[in-house]
Write a protein that binds this DNA or RNA. Structure first.
Length: 499
RNA sequence: GCUCCCAUCGUCUAGUGGUCUAGGACACUGGCCUCUCACGUCGGUAACAGGGGUUCGAACCCCCUUGGGAGCACCA
């Protein structure tokens, strides 16, 4: 058994019989004085999905809150599946969300020399060895073990081999400890014990010399001085292996936090059929980055009864060790609600900045905007009746582009046979001394009394359909105020043709 | 098959042995507000997976069962 090194969050128990030492070893002093370094390490084999974003967020929050550093690392060693587009999408997604990194992005493909160097060291130190077993041989071994109801694992038959086997380029395997146990002190899951006998000698370099995932991660986390590895809990089973390699290297073992995964609304694994899984799709759908982050941070974590968090509050209140252990289901309705809440809390000016691209997307150009009412004023009216920026852009368009035709259903219901009323309204509004919401409101109220038994709805709805083209809009007085008199009268005039 | 993880309303969660006839939020739903749509506001429906322990006392501790999930690659 290799010498046990001191490390941060692990202890190794010597099997009964070999008396003596228990290496407790939680160096709390060191943990407190060492500056925090976390990382997010996606592999660029697809879009940046929502589950990845949450682990990125947790890592980022922990680093920001502790005044530490957040490192971005791209794990692109799977040459077959990694693409430049995916890398670009990841960076763009992170940037959109404002999850800024202090170091990187580092690319594993650019670190090959370093991996080979470490590999050579391990070979020399005897913590790794060449294995000449053929795939067939290993497959047969596993087949056999499965047949006996055992967990398939390499039996270490090349450990003692000193001579090369002709015509075979060997892989390199890690020489894992035979007995005892490896204990992960996970910040989220607590103490998790693994019997070392469960872990076999894993391949750390392929026969073509390229290093494998578990090895690269270890070397990178070590080199980059990562103090807290925050990642999906699908990696919990990899952790003891990584810890063993770290120990064999004489490196300090970081603290681990394995965050549960995100499930679809049906509690099944989140996939495309659940709708959007890529972050950038959420941007397209009109979600505010802070709202998405707020939703994600609450999925598996809470701070009293608080639901809405600003970015600053997240950084202040978030604690990685209070994250829930159980997987949680993605709830689109709640995301929508949180987004609406964030939209309401922004100032009209602030929200306007977010809205601009979406307006352009629906054809409201800069020049149309310049010719119409001031945008923050429109935003202020729409702010508490829009759940997404897309929805808001659609509603705002009406202020800059007059409807060419009324919604048939609404015209039928509210405008049909109202020619006289429209004419009266046109006249009354045209005669109004000052064009402002309160004055418009008074006029409409008078009209309601004189023409509609005092029912405001009987006046407001026909008017609304006439100027907005549909039966839904912000309060009609405020809407007309923003249109301006000229535009309002023009629209009324045009609407007479719809009747 | 083996190893590991997980388990409170439909969903996200609060709850760490008595203050729980289990709290909040989304969704759903009834009322109020109201020119439409929203917002807001007041109310309602709705949960400790099951079984054993431990204890004077268990949602909280232990064990088992059940049900989910992950891993067991020359993928990451």
């Amino acid at each position: 058994m290799p010498r046990v090194k001191r490390c941060l969050s692990v202890s190794i128990r010597i099997p009964a019989g070999q008396r003596g030492c228990y290496y407790p070893v939680f160096d709390s002093l060191r943990l407190r004085t060492m500056s925090v370094r976390t990382r997010f390490a996606p592999s660029p084999t697809g879009y940046l999905h929502i589950g990845g974003v949450r682990t990125a967020l947790y890592s980022w929050l922990h680093a920001r809150q502790q005044g530490g550093h957040f490192v971005l690392r791209i794990e692109d060693t799977d040459v077959e599946r990694s693409t430049l587009e995916a890398t670009a999408a990841i960076l763009e997604g992170m940037a959109w969300l404002g999850l800024d990194w202090d170091e990187g992005p580092f690319y594993q493909m650019q670190r090959m020399d370093r991996y080979r160097e470490v590999l050579a060291q391990m070979l020399a130190a005897g913590t790794a060895y060449h294995c000449y077993c053929s795939r067939e041989e290993v497959d047969a071994m596993r087949e056999n073990q499965r047949g006996r109801g055992e967990k398939p694992r390499y039996d270490g038959r090349c450990r003692q081999r000193t001579a090369a086997r002709d015509g075979v380029t060997p892989v390199i395997r890690f020489r894992s400890p035979d007995g005892g146990e490896t204990v992960v002190e996970d910040l989220i899951h607590g103490t998790v014990r693994f019997q070392n006998s469960e872990l076999d000698d894993l391949i750390i370099a392929r026969s073509d010399g390229t290093p494998t995932y578990n090895f690269c991660v270890v070397v990178d986390d070590w080199d980059m001085g990562i103090t807290h590895v925050i990642r999906g809990d699908d990696h919990l089973n990899n952790t003891p292996r990584q810890m063993q390699i770290l120990q064999a290297l004489g490196a300090q073992v970081p603290a681990y936090a394995h965050v549960p995964m995100i499930l679809g609304p049906d509690k099944q694994k989140l996939s495309k059929r659940h709708g959007a899984v890529s972050v950038l799709e959420y941007r397209e759908q009109g979600f505010l980055p802070d709202a998405l982050l707020n939703f994600l941070v609450r999925l598996g974590w809470s701070h009293g009864d608080q639901e809405i968090f600003t970015r600053e509050e997240m950084v202040e209140f978030f604690r990685i060790d209070t994250v829930n252990k159980a997987a949680s289901a993605f709830n689109p309705e709640k995301l929508l609600w949180i987004n609406a809440q964030h939209m309401q809390r922004l100032t009209p000016e602030g929200l306007t900045q977010h809205l601009l691209p979406y307006l352009n997307a629906v054809g409201v150009t800069e020049s149309l905007l310049a010719a119409g009412p001031t945008l923050p004023a429109v935003v202020a009216l729409l702010q508490e009746r829009s759940k997404t920026l897309v929805e808001m852009a659609a509603a705002a368009a009406m202020f800059y582009v007059a409807p060419v035709a009324g919604e048939p259903k609404d015209v039928e219901k509210h405008l049909h046979g109202q020619g006289a009323l429209l004419a009266t309204m046109t006249q009354a509004l045209g005669a109004l001394p000052n064009w402002e919401a309160a004055a418009i409101h008074s006029v409409l109220q008078e009209l309601a009394v004189t023409h509609a038994d005092g029912k405001m709805g009987k006046v407001a709805q026909p008017l609304r359909v006439a100027v907005a083209g549909r039966a839904v809009s912000p309060p009609i007085d405020a809407t007309l105020a923003l249109f301006g008199r000229e535009e309002t009268l023009a629209r009324l005039q045009r609407a007479t043709a719809w009747i």
